[in-house]
Simulated assay, not measured.
Amino acid sequence: MTETTGPAISFSWPIRVYWEDTDAGGVVYHAGYLRFLERARSEWLRACGIDQQRLRDDTGIGFVVRDMHIGFVAPARLDDELDVHVAVEQLRAASMKFAQSIHRRDGTLLIQASVRVACVDLANMRPCKIPDDLLARIS
């Protein structure tokens, strides 16, 4: 089994907070941060040259979140400009562990997250090996 551990090239994706992201108190609703983290991972894959729709159509595989640990440090508010960071922390044969964080543009840390995604055969939702060509683009 191939396993790589350690910091990888970091990727960042900008996001602005809109009304739809906030709760009655004007702060980002806690579940909204999951969408921000997901968007950044998807854009990271795209930056690596991986089209998730094509991957699904051509191979029948995809990536699903297996587990996630989130530390909420400070709130984001309406109109805040955020940067969502993604770094591969661990790469295994059938999974990846990401270190992610969300910062306000002024550098304030808002969220720290550890996210493990599994590569699965979408027909039966069983884990499968990440194809070698994807591994080469990711690492």
Rank of each mutant, 00 (worst) to 15 (best):
G32R: 05
H30L: 05
R35D: 10
R35K: 14
A40R: 03
F36G: 02
E38R: 09
Y33K: 08
F36V: 07
L34T: 07
A40L: 13
R35Q: 12
R46F: 04
T22L: 07
I9P: 10
L45I: 08
W13M: 08
P14W: 06
E20K: 12
W19G: 01
Y33F: 15
R16T: 15
S10V: 13
G32Y: 02
V17R: 00
A31E: 05
V28S: 02
W44M: 08
Y33A: 14
P14E: 12
R39Q: 15
A24E: 11
S10N: 06
V17Y: 00
S10R: 15
D23S: 11
E38L: 07
S10F: 06
L37R: 03
Y18G: 12
R16Q: 14
F36H: 01
R46C: 09
E38Q: 12
R16C: 02
H30S: 10
D23T: 14
S12P: 08
D23H: 12
G26Y: 11
I15H: 03
V17A: 04
S42I: 09
A31N: 11
V27Q: 09
G26S: 14
R46M: 10
R41H: 10
E20V: 02
E38T: 13
Y29I: 03
Y29T: 01
T22F: 05
F11D: 00
T22I: 11
W44C: 04
P14R: 00
I9C: 09
R16F: 13
E20M: 04
L37Y: 01
E38G: 04
W13G: 02
R46S: 03
V27A: 02
R41D: 09
W19I: 12
G26Q: 03
E43C: 08
G26T: 08
D21Y: 04
E38I: 05
D21T: 06
P7C: 01
R16I: 11
V17E: 00
I15P: 01
D21K: 04
I9D: 07
T22N: 09
S42T: 15
A24D: 06
R46Y: 06
A24N: 09
D21S: 01
V27I: 15
W44N: 06
E38V: 13
H30E: 01
P7S: 09
R41W: 14
Y33S: 08
V17C: 07
R39L: 07
F36Q: 04
S12Y: 07
V27L: 13
